[in-house]
Design a protein around this nucleic acid. Structure first.
Lengths: 255, 255
DNA sequence: GAGTGGTCTAGACCACCTT
DNA sequence: AGGTGGTCTAGACCACTCA
């Protein structure tokens, strides 16, 4: 029965010389092998947990353990209550190159997209005000966007811009390069760029906006761009899926 | 009974207006609150899973779900079969500054340490040879080190150095700055530095060397340093605990 | 409406750490 | 030796997706 309902690419596990690595690791290896061998392409859907359960003869919890392992390795991901899928290749992000998301994703042969989730004007709270060097309560634009690669949401971001420096910013189309708008419409040119990165978990709003389960591993990228006078032009928090991104920095060493 | 065995800092969960967020999230919030409120200091040990189970009145699996969530958020970590502990603050790593691990960790008021795990001379395999621009099978030194902060292992690394460029390298004390040795003893000065970062999972050897469970989230940092002639001096794979590191890059924007 | 993953329970045994 | 986390089982019900 289980064989009949299993997909064509599925093969029975080999004689599992378990050793003592744990059944979930054996299951992990088995699934990983199916993926690496290419029978399942990026974006492809795995069999259901209950099918895997029958096919491998272990409890569902054990299968899920194996799937979580592969998820944290970035090899598979899930769409909530829909199923498990093979992760596409990550894109490479180079913070030293001043190319926007739409540009560098397209350069890598992938299809980028941007959705503006909300635009508001708010008063800068403690953390943001301090980071931007503004007095507490100073008016700032807050833009929330979601960005996708090949139709899959890969990041959500919150961008802060000092309202005084870019009046009516929110009336523009914000689905493209914000930096471009700030430069061409408001003469705010960026000359310095600070990037901070930290592994994190995607929780609450960010998880929901990305359609992932709260607690999924992610990468937080905080970007601050400055003009020649050293004032902040954009302050941006990007929450990335952990399997969607590779960061590459090329630097000359100070003497 | 459960109260009697709970530690002094523990407080009963509030009337849990569950809503519908899931009991494990309620448990997560409860534990997180205890940590944020400071009753438990970084490095401190959480109550055992079975104590938490009794105290919160849920199954052990549910408690573990909450703990995994906090782990992936970087708030707690585990020592294998010993218990759960509150994570210390991450250190900040700035790849643009040419300071070694021992230096920048100490600068942040933490105590760095290095252990050389193994030193061997091997033939460069496909991936390494290609990355280093060497012919396949070229002799390279391979150094495996573990580095600790305040006594806690935070990364393991594999460093490759072309053997011809640094004969007898392995006879030196390698617990300090390798870059320093290459510079002073072999006149190999670095002028360019390429850094790549990618969230990953710590598995097998790396997990074992760090004393974490296979599958724990991590961060892979690949560093390649070049001399003025553009030849690779060091090629290094660092596997970091995901909660130990924050990366900060400060860049001037190319015109 | 059937099937999916998401959550939860209540056990059990084990390898290992700690004392 | 006792306690810890690590693994595993076999159920169950739910919210949701998808056809």
């Amino acid at each position: 029965m289980s064989d009949a309902s299993a997909p064509a690419w599925w093969t029975a596990p080999s004689e599992t010389p378990v050793g003592d690595r744990g059944r979930y690791l054996v299951a992990r290896d088995h699934i990983a092998r199916q993926i690496h061998s290419g029978v399942l392409k990026p974006g492809g859907k795995l069999p259901s947990e209950r099918q895997l359960q029958d096919g491998l003869g272990v409890a569902r919890g054990t299968i899920r353990e194996a799937l979580f392992q592969l998820e944290s390795e970035g090899m598979i991901y899930r769409r909530d209550r829909s199923g498990w899928y093979v992760s596409p290749e990550p894109v490479t992000y180079d913070p030293t190159r001043w190319a926007g998301f739409m540009t560098y994703v397209a350069e890598q042969g992938r299809q980028p997209a941007t959705e503006t989730l909300s635009t508001t004007s708010v008063e800068a709270q403690d953390g943001v005000a301090k980071a931007m060097g503004l007095p507490l309560g100073a008016p700032v634009h807050l833009i929330r966007r979601r960005r996708l690669i090949d139709g899959r949401p890969v990041l959500v971001e919150r961008i802060y811009v000092e309202a005084k420096r870019a009046p009516d910013l929110l009336t523009h189309d914000l689905d493209g390069s914000l930096t471009q708008i700030l430069k061409s419409r408001y003469r705010l040119a960026v000359t310095r760029n600070r990037v901070e990165m930290q592994p994190c978990a995607l929780i609450q709003e960010e998880a929901e906006a990305l359609g992932v389960k709260s607690g999924t591993p992610g990468l937080l990228v905080v970007r601050a761009s400055f003009d020649a006078a050293g004032r902040i032009v954009e302050y941006d928090h990007e929450y990335w899926r952990h399997d969607a991104l590779r960061v590459k920095v090329d630097l000359d060493v100070a003497p």
